[in-house]
Lab assay of single mutants.
Amino acid sequence: NQASVVANQLIPINTALTLVMMRSEVVTPVGIPAEDIPRLVGMQVNRAVPLGTTLMPDMVKGYA
């Protein structure tokens, strides 16, 4: 099963992502693939992302 990117903490709206904010986990539904974590660093979320939430492509500005 493919691992997805999951929020390791509450990520406030418009926050630029850092490695410490994300972890990989096998979840359903599948979100952004864990191998894209390096690409996500520095990108901003367009909404608040609660701890444990799977990051979906539409949550990250410029990802989709």
Rank of each mutant, 00 (worst) to 15 (best):
N1Q: 15
N1F: 08
N1A: 15
N1R: 01
Q2L: 09
Q2S: 13
Q2F: 13
Q2I: 09
Q2T: 15
A3I: 10
A3S: 10
A3D: 14
A3K: 04
A3L: 10
S4M: 04
S4D: 00
S4W: 10
S4F: 07
S4R: 02
V5I: 11
V5N: 00
V5R: 01
V6F: 09
A7V: 12
A7S: 08
A7N: 03
A7H: 01
N8A: 15
Q9C: 05
Q9L: 10
Q9T: 07
L10K: 08
L10G: 11
L10A: 12
L10H: 12
L10V: 05
L10Q: 07
I11Q: 01
I11P: 00
I11C: 03
I11T: 02
I11R: 01
P12V: 12
P12E: 11
I13P: 04
I13F: 10
I13G: 04
I13N: 08
I13W: 04
N14W: 08
N14E: 06
N14F: 08
T15N: 05
T15K: 07
T15H: 09
T15L: 04
A16Y: 08
A16T: 07
A16E: 03
A16F: 13
A16P: 11
A16L: 15
A16C: 05
L17Y: 01
L17K: 00
L17E: 00
T18W: 06
T18K: 05
T18I: 07
T18N: 02
T18F: 09
T18L: 05
L19M: 14
L19F: 14
V20F: 13
V20K: 14
V20G: 10
M21Q: 05
M21N: 09
M21T: 04
M22R: 00
M22T: 03
M22I: 12
M22Q: 02
M22Y: 02
M22P: 00
R23K: 11
S24P: 12
E25K: 03
E25L: 05
E25A: 10
V26H: 05
V26S: 15
V26G: 14
V27A: 08
V27L: 05
V27S: 04
V27Q: 09
V27I: 05
T28N: 07
P29N: 12
P29C: 14
V30K: 03
V30P: 13
V30F: 12
V30T: 13
V30I: 14
G31V: 03
G31A: 09
G31L: 01
G31Y: 03
G31I: 02
G31Q: 05
I32S: 02
I32Y: 02
I32N: 01
I32P: 00
I32R: 00
I32D: 00
I32A: 03
P33E: 04
P33T: 08
P33A: 15
A34I: 15
A34R: 03
A34M: 09
A34F: 06
A34W: 07
A34L: 13
A34Y: 08
E35V: 05
E35L: 06
E35W: 03
E35Y: 05
D36N: 05
I37G: 13
I37Y: 02
P38H: 12
P38V: 08
P38N: 14
R39N: 05
R39F: 10
R39I: 05
L40Y: 06
L40E: 00
L40T: 02
V41S: 10
V41H: 09
V41W: 10
V41I: 12
G42L: 04
G42M: 13
G42I: 01
G42W: 08
M43Q: 15
M43A: 05
M43K: 06
M43V: 06
M43H: 09
M43R: 13
M43I: 06
Q44G: 07
Q44I: 12
Q44K: 07
Q44L: 07
Q44A: 13
V45K: 00
V45M: 14
V45N: 02
V45S: 10
V45L: 09
R47Q: 15
R47T: 10
R47C: 05
R47W: 09
R47A: 11
R47E: 08
A48T: 15
A48N: 14
A48I: 12
V49L: 09
V49A: 06
V49S: 04
P50C: 06
P50G: 12
P50D: 11
L51K: 07
L51S: 15
L51H: 07
L51N: 04
L51E: 14
G52W: 08
G52M: 14
T53N: 08
T53L: 11
T53H: 15
T53D: 11
T53P: 00
T53C: 03
T54E: 02
T54I: 10
T54V: 05
T54L: 10
T54R: 05
L55Y: 01
L55N: 00
L55V: 09
M56A: 13
M56Q: 09
M56L: 13
M56Y: 08
P57C: 14
P57S: 10
P57H: 12
D58C: 15
D58F: 12
D58W: 12
D58P: 06
M59P: 00
M59D: 06
M59V: 04
M59N: 10
M59K: 02
V60G: 00
V60C: 02
V60T: 02
V60W: 01
K61N: 10
K61P: 08
K61E: 05
K61T: 11
G62W: 09
G62C: 15
G62E: 13
Y63M: 14
Y63N: 06
A64V: 12
A64C: 15
A64T: 14
